[in-house]
Design a protein around this nucleic acid. Structure first.
Lengths: 85, 85
DNA sequence: GTAATATTTAGATAAATTCCTAAATATCTA
DNA sequence: TAGATATTTAGGAATTTATCTAAATATTAC
């Protein structure tokens, strides 16, 4: 059940900030990392958890890997929250 | 910032199930615990994290402590998710 | 006030998470 | 093919989390 991974992914503020960044525009792993005071391997790990949660897509373009939002899981989450309204 | 606690609270499936239970009706700590194969102290701990996240209210009535949903944080969360829509 | 019931608090342990450095992989360019 | 750049993978240390048992607190009923 993918919502489980999504909720886990969302529990970390760094990952939520990554999602916020991707809301503005698609970015390479390096560009994303530039927004944090954290090593690239650490950011890479966060990206892999977001990918596991199916909250982002990754696509290689030459040397770079571009990350973008995958909004399908967000819709499921939105439905979950609306129940509590 | 209370959203941080809320996201942390939501990362655990037991806590999400507690919230689901409280969606149906208010319940005592004991009634909630009866829905899980877990000791009462463990459930009590989960309840305290939900309270810290301001996602539930607690109110003592005699020997029992009744838990109920506090939906104000849910509205903030909903707003957060709508941004990704 | 003592016993019974409901719940929480304290303290401990095992597992999961976050972050780091070093090494590996993939791609591009000369 | 060798070197440079972008990114991930591997392995490990420190912290946090989830859970348990035992003890403490609060309330009720006799």
């Amino acid at each position: 059940m993918s919502m489980n991974y999504a909720f886990k992914a969302l529990s970390d503020p760094t990952r939520r900030k990554i999602l916020d960044l991707l809301r503005e525009k698609d970015m390479t792993a390096g560009e994303i990392a530039d927004h944090f005071q954290m090593t690239k391997p650490s950011i890479s790990h966060h990206l892999s958890l977001l990918k596991q949660a199916q909250m982002v897509y990754d696509e290689r373009k030459g040397q770079n890997i571009y990350y973008s939002l995958n909004t399908t899981v967000f819709q499921d989450l939105l439905k979950w929250f609306i129940q509590f309204h």
